[in-house]
């Protein structure tokens, strides 16, 4: 019986990536990634800077291809159907997989309320009679409601960094995605704001499939059920977070999590 090999994840795969290669111009930054993101669970992707972890999750919602000169090879399936098929509209895909970025990026010309509704407005799918309901739902889901409910008309950029990031999470949740892709969402936040976002991830994981990129190993250990370790564009190891941090099978994983490099 293989003890060091990971058993298949109990949950079905939401995203299933096979042979994913990503390029910037002629430079290949991902060298064939096979990785499943199981449904209804938090998957953390860790690794040193430049290992391709951000590029990988940007392939999941096809944001990678927006960069001039960027290219993708391989297959990624969402719920069993390819997202890179010719008939797939990346715009519709992105509504199913929301994204939160490294630096909070609320729209500076919009109020808190309008920021939350931005996704629905920009896609022309806002039902005006449901607007208040959506705003309240999204802000409550992102644990921001109590702090901003009395100043929804004020500009979103007037909030603190941590609040802005939760506003961006609310904005992503308002379009009712199935997946939340988080690209180092706490890298520009202080420890208190980081803790709030991590609490929030715990609350959200029952409702959404979450993939979070982080360079902070403690964070990965705190929030995720599964962890994938990337190094120089390759997936070194993936498995239950507990096991990755206590009994990694690959020496490179061990060197990284024990702080020998990175």
């Amino acid at each position: 019986m293989p003890t060091t090999r990971e058993r298949e994840p109990a949950r079905p795969a939401k995203f299933s990536a096979r042979g994913v290669m990503a390029f910037f111009g002629d430079k290949r930054v991902l060298h064939g990634i096979d990785l499943d993101i199981p449904a209804g669970e938090v998957t953390a992707i860790i690794g040193p800077s430049g290992c391709g972890k951000s590029t990988f999750i940007r392939c999941l919602n096809r944001m990678h291809e927006l960069i001039p000169g960027a290219r993708f090879e391989g297959t990624i399936e969402l719920d069993g159907s390819s997202i890179y098929g010719r008939e797939i509209d990346p715009v519709l895909l992105r509504r199913r997989a929301g994204m939160v970025f490294q630096k909070p990026n609320p729209f500076p010309t919009m109020s808190i309320r309008d920021n939350v509704l931005a996704g629905l407005r920009l896609t022309g799918s806002l039902d005006k009679t449901r607007a208040e309901e959506v705003v309240e739902f999204a802000l409550k889901s992102s644990a921001l409601w109590d702090e901003v409910k009395d100043r929804l008309k004020q500009p979103g950029i007037g909030l603190s960094g941590g609040q802005q990031q939760r506003l961006c999470i609310a904005r992503a949740l308002a379009v009712e995605p199935e997946v939340l892709l988080m690209d180092e969402p706490c890298s520009s936040l202080d420890p208190v704001a980081t803790a709030r976002i991590e609490d929030l991830i715990h609350e959200l994981k029952s409702r959404y499939t979450i993939a979070i990129v982080t360079h902070n190993m403690q964070q990965a250990a705190r929030v995720s059920g599964r962890t994938a370790f990337f190094l120089q564009g390759e997936l070194v190891e993936v498995g239950a977070t507990d096991r990755i941090f206590t009994a990694p099978t690959d020496s490179r994983t061990e060197d990284y999590i024990t702080g020998k490099f990175g």
Partner: peptide, 27 residues
């Protein structure tokens, strides 16, 4: 206009025109 705003709009499923006219131009 910072590129992060364009990315924010695209990630919400906005098309190119909506991104330009409703996010980039107002900014």
């Amino acid at each position: 206009v910072p590129n992060t705003l364009r990315e924010g709009a695209y990630a919400l499923g906005a098309g190119r025109l909506a991104t330009i006219f409703r996010v980039v131009l107002p900014a």
